[in-house]
Design a protein around this nucleic acid. Structure first.
Length: 849
RNA sequence: GCCGAGGUGGCGAAAUGGUAUACGCAGGGGACUUAAAAUCCCCCGGGAGAAAUCCCAUGCGGGUUCGAGUCCCGCCCUCGGCACCA
């Protein structure tokens, strides 16, 4: 009977044939809806476990190894949870909107509306072929109106609560992609996608006010179980820094050759007309006595006011030059500093000295207040500038207590710790004390306030492109920007044949008058639709909320189901999304919580970043022609082998080196598992072999501990070791030794496991029950152990003894060892270290010495 | 420059402060076979030695410890992230 089943799965001679076996089980899983949750199961599922992985962008090239690596790692986790008694929901979908698809379509002269469906079909085929336990009844495609209807709905929720605002702002413009990029999409001043230098433009854009959430996003990190590297990346990205805002009153013009140092503060105040003050943000208020000039960002609004008539021409020329400068050039750290004196002055609130106000492009309008107090003695950038412009440098912090002299010819800024000098009555305080004391002092004069700055910027979601969800706003001349009524959603993205962007900075949709003309929902007059589409990252910032609720058409996420399944139990994905997708998802979740749509603030309880796969020691790239084509590997070895090998390469969170020959190991291993299982079918004598039994329980223990920790490579190694013990010296395997092995290999090689499981006479899918083996600590315990015998910490002999042997007896046996007695004669034992079941160490005092 | 992660055989990699190199690849030897493939068994860090055994070895230099790949201090290198962020 069993052999007939094997014949049916394509086995003529009882050897392992992965391809027919995998086809058979993939078909069966689909027919029997093994991995699909019914609406009822979604509402009631016991012990629910939401196992999420980052959904792919469906490229024309198909799944790459990186995708398969990540999905396999996540799927192994899901299958393990299933086998240990959870109801696992493991969805997959497609992140198909965005510049990526659009650019590819343009290049190939295709329409994304034609391209994407065929890519999705191909991806679906490949995803099924790799044997993931995906729930194909609950997928998501961000380009489907039934999905982006709700993306637009999310925009409206944020708009209505004031978190979406339209503002004109300098933005990053990619002249090649012809669109605005978010700060996150600019890498080193270049477009992340096409590496073109980014330019500055001023366009009215929609922004999400993520900066309102800076502190919450930072605080939340402490409570979630995420990869440390990812948390650290977010922390750096948010970039909290504590400091103060200090006020520098703008002073009357002074002849720059006149030194004002001799004037008293009262005298100075009398010549100061308090028109305006320049606010600067600093993390070093303790160095304010060393602030010898002020620098405004060239775009700073006060530049106009401080600039003197004589300097106006030079200032405007510099502003013009900076505005033209792309961000790459501007952000080059190495370049020599440039700037122009405005002709204006400000009053140092601490010294009472009048100091010059400059503009320079090394000060950014986008950070802090767009203005700094320059302390060249203690900030390298200010130092470089002061040297270049011949501005005074004053030392106010001394590294050593003794040197109180004013160093005039220092070679570089000193930014370390020390004591304050040249700071009047604050002299002698430490940097930390000085910060507080000076801040407090200036506060009493209304010249300072404590301030926390963040590096994080608001999230610009406008894209002047075609391939995205139209932003659901109608611009009315009377009413301004008006929300599209929710019942009118979705605003369908129309099919237009010429979707190529141009340099005008407006979306291709703006060429479609019949589309963008619409009645104002408030006053009914003819108005214009917003023609920008939203950022792809908005699509992916909430997709995990949609998955369990794809059966609901009238709500984005069903409240009962959402309460049951969210937040996500485990999320696995690449660390390249540490500060983009993962931060935005957290922000959207918090915003929806505040608005009252969901009852949790963090979307992903646990997140693990996987590592990267390289090949034969170097990065894979199309240009090098060394990319692995998954289809070819699967065709040759089967999905089970591919999966197992990928998980065996190295630690999942670190990635690994894909060596072509290496796949032989796991391949042979699965062959051997199969053969051993078939042998055990014919030899079911159930004789107890304590050696094998002990190893089995040790293995179960190790694998049960390690799989949830994603330590897959060592788990597979443990299974290999176990099989080596089972088969050692040609030993005949027994079924009770193999059945648990089959279950433990199942997360990695699910098809093989199912087939053997069926051969063992089970009619139900292995994954339909709680089949994970239990271990007994008793049975895992060894009765004899190999002990190391050391002399002065060096291994000199090993001895196999009864486990838990007491020190006295072990010492006796050890001393009897030939090599040990030899050493013991050479000195006297000063001390004996005994580590039960591990080692005994004789510490000698040499007789010779 | 700042923040992470890492550096162990020919290679991918293992090791709660306790016998370094598990597991696998490649390589060598053997069995089975007319032959090949597949499979199975054995060897495999370097050096000395007939052997017992000894010495050396986890990027480099110090330290703590009975004992350090692991902990501490100071460097070097590789890879990721951030970066005139005030």
């Amino acid at each position: 009977m069993r052999s007939r089943e094997l014949m049916m799965s394509g086995n003529q001679n009882n050897s392992y044939t992965p391809i027919p076996i995998e086809e058979k089980w993939q078909t069966r899983w689909e027919h029997e809806a093994t991995n699909t949750l019914s609406p009822q199961a979604l509402e009631e599922g016991e012990n629910s476990y939401y196992n999420l992985m980052m959904f792919p962008y469906p490229s024309a090239e198909g799944l790459h190894v990186g995708n398969i690596y990540a999905f396999t790692g996540a799927d192994v986790h899901g299958r393990f949870q299933q086998l240990t008694g959870h109801t696992v929901f493991e969805p997959i979908g497609f992140d198909a909107f965005g510049i990526h698809s659009e650019n590819f379509a343009l290049k190939q002269s295709l329409h994304p509306m034609d391209l994407i469906p065929s890519n999705v079909t191909n991806f679906t085929r490949q995803l099924k072929r790799m044997g993931g336990m995906f729930d194909w009844k609950h997928t998501v495609d961000t380009t489907d109106p039934s999905y982006y209807r709700w993306t637009q709905w999310i925009f409206l929720q944020l708009f209505k609560s004031g978190l979406a605002v339209r503002k004109e702002a300098p933005v990053n413009w990619c002249p090649s992609c012809m669109t605005v990029l978010s700060n996150e999409q600019v890498v080193g001043g270049r477009c992340e996608r096409c590496n073109t230098p980014v330019e500055q433009r001023h366009i009215a854009q929609w922004f999400f006010r993520i900066t309102e959430y800076s502190q919450r996003l930072l605080d939340g990190l402490k409570q979630i179980d995420w990869s440390e590297t990812t948390k650290k990346a977010q922390e750096n990205w948010i970039g909290r820094s504590e400091g103060a805002i200090l006020n520098f009153p703008i002073s009357v013009e002074e002849d720059e050759t006149t030194s004002l140092d001799h004037l008293t503060q009262d005298e100075l105040s009398s010549v100061t007309i308090n028109l305006k003050t320049i606010e600067v943000f600093t993390t070093r208020p303790d160095t304010v006595f060393g602030a010898t000039y002020i620098v405004l960002s060239p775009e700073h609004p006060l530049v106009k006011e401080v600039t003197s008539d004589q300097q106006r021409e030079a200032v405007q020329a510099y502003q013009k030059k900076t505005a033209k400068l792309d961000l790459v050039a501007r952000q080059k750290t190495e370049k020599t500093k440039t700037g122009v004196f405005t002709g204006g002055y400000a009053l140092n609130p601490a010294t009472g000295t009048v100091i010059p106000v400059w503009i320079a492009d090394y000060v950014m309008m986008t950070y802090g207040t767009g203005a700094i107090m320059a302390v060249p003695g203690h900030d390298q950038r200010d130092f470089d500038f002061a040297k270049a412009m011949d501005l005074p440098i004053k030392q106010v912090v001394s590294a050593e207590k003794k040197s109180k002299d004013t160093v005039t010819d220092i070679l570089q800024a000193y930014s370390g710790d020390g004591v304050l000098i040249n700071s009047k009555h604050f002299d002698g305080l430490s940097v930390a004390e000085g910060k507080k004391a000076i801040c407090d002092w200036l506060k009493t004069k209304d010249m300072a306030s404590v301030h926390v700055g963040y590096r994080l910027h608001d999230w610009c979601i406008s894209r002047q492109r075609y391939w995205g969800p139209p932003i659901p706003i109608i611009h009315c001349d009377e009413c301004g920007p008006v929300a599209v009524p929710e019942e009118s959603l979705p605003i369908i993205l129309p099919r237009i044949e010429n979707f190529k962007p141009d340099d005008s900075g407006v979306s291709p949709l703006a060429r479609l008058e019949e589309w963008y003309l619409a009645d104002c929902p408030e006053c009914g007059k003819t108005a214009r639709r917003e023609t920008d589409v939203s950022d792809t990252f908005l699509d992916s910032s909430w997709y995990f909320l949609r998955y369990p609720s794809t059966d609901s058409e009238d709500v984005p996420f069903d409240s009962t189901i959402t309460r049951k399944w969210l937040p996500v139990n485990c999320y696995i994905g690449g660390n390249e999304h540490a500060v983009l997708h993962l931060l935005y998802s957290r922000f959207i979740t918090m915003a929806l919580y505040d608005i009252g749509h969901i009852d949790f603030q963090e979307p992903f309880v646990r997140f693990r970043a996987h590592g990267l796969i390289i090949r034969e020691g170097s990065k894979m790239s199309k240009s090098k022609g060394n990319v692995i084509i998954p289809d070819q590997i699967i065709e040759k070895y089967g999905a089970d082998t591919f999966r197992t090998y990928l998980m065996f390469l190295g630690p999942f969170d670190e990635g690994g080196d894909y060596q072509d020959d290496g796949i032989q190991g796991p391949h042979g291993f699965l062959h051997r598992v199969w053969e051993t299982a078939m042998l055990s079918l014919q030899n079911d004598k159930q004789e107890k072999d304590s050696n094998v039994e002990r190893k089995l329980h040790q293995t179960i223990q190790q694998v049960t501990d390690q799989i949830p920790e994603l330590r897959y490579n060592t788990s597979i190694a443990a299974l290999m070791e176990y099989l080596n013990v089972v088969r050692s010296k040609g030993r005949t395997p027994q079924r009770c030794e193999i059945e648990p092995l089959v279950v433990m290999i199942a997360p990695f090689a699910p098809h093989l496991a199912e087939e053997i499981w069926e051969s063992f006479g089970h009619s139900e899918s292995l994954f339909s029950g709680v089949n994970w083996p239990e271990y007994s600590a008793d049975k895992a315990r060894a009765d004899t152990v190999e002990m190391a015998i050391q002399i002065n910490g060096k291994l000199r002999a090993t001895i196999t003894v009864q486990a838990e042997m007491d020190q006295e007896e072990l010492e006796k046996l050890s001393r009897a060892e030939k090599n040990i007695s030899r050493y013991l004669e050479m000195g006297t034992v000063k001390r004996v270290i005994y580590v039960p079941n591990r080692l005994i160490n004789f510490v000698l005092e040499s007789n010779n010495a």
